[in-house]
């Protein structure tokens, strides 16, 4: 029970300080600058909002000016904080391992899967676009073998189509392949 020996460098698993990759600071700075730039944009654009002559007190410009000023102010404060080394704490979560580096490839592939899904809906129909999204995302996140993910995705897409499209009347496009199949029409 010698818990209080002077060894502050040994982090326990519960609150281990996450290893911070050197590139982190730039990303955070970019975000703070983005907030500032958005604020500046709001301030400039707010001046261009047409004010009908009838409003004699607070028109449609006032609140945007307020929001723009807040964004600029906070963005500058954040940029200064980051530059002075006060970084944000990445969010914790049950499935998040803060000790590993950010895997940008996974993020990019997941986004790509979503974008492909969006454009596939009107071409191959919602159930198949959904199956595509599910399978792609699952495989990117580590599902093996790939055909099992595809199978689950297909079943899921069809079940959702039947329940929401067929039974609840949501107009999900079933797509050319399932044209005329009962229960599937949205």
């Amino acid at each position: 029970m010698r818990s209080d020996v002077k060894a502050p460098e040994v982090p326990t698993t519960a609150d281990a300080a996450p290893a911070r990759p050197p590139g982190r600071r730039w990303g955070e700075l970019v975000l703070a600058v983005a907030v500032t730039v958005l604020g500046a944009y709001v301030l400039v654009t707010a001046g261009g909002i047409v004010v009908p002559g009838s409003t004699n007190t607070l028109g449609p410009r006032a609140f945007p000016y307020l929001v723009g000023a807040m964004l600029v102010g906070i963005g500058v404060v954040l940029a200064v904080l980051v530059l002075r080394g006060r970084r944000g704490e990445a969010e914790e979560g049950e499935d998040v391992d803060l000790t590993v580096r950010t895997d940008w490839l996974t993020v990019a592939l997941l986004v790509a899967a979503l974008v492909v899904h969006v454009f596939a809906i009107n071409v191959i129909g919602w159930p198949f676009a959904a199956a595509l999204l599910f399978a792609a995302a699952a495989v990117v996140l580590g599902a093996r073998p790939w055909w099992r993910a595809a199978l689950i995705g297909l079943v899921l897409g069809l079940v959702v189509q039947v329940i929401f499209g067929g039974l609840l009347g949501l107009s999900l496009p079933a797509g050319p392949l399932l044209e005329g199949v009962p229960f599937l029409r949205g």
């Binding site: 979560g93 998040v96 391992d97 803060l98 895997d103 996974t106």
Partner: peptide, 12 residues
């Protein structure tokens, strides 16, 4: 946002 974030740092 959550799915992307977890995906970027998945606990394997």
């Amino acid at each position: 946002g959550e799915a992307l974030y977890v995906g970027s740092r998945m606990r394997h």
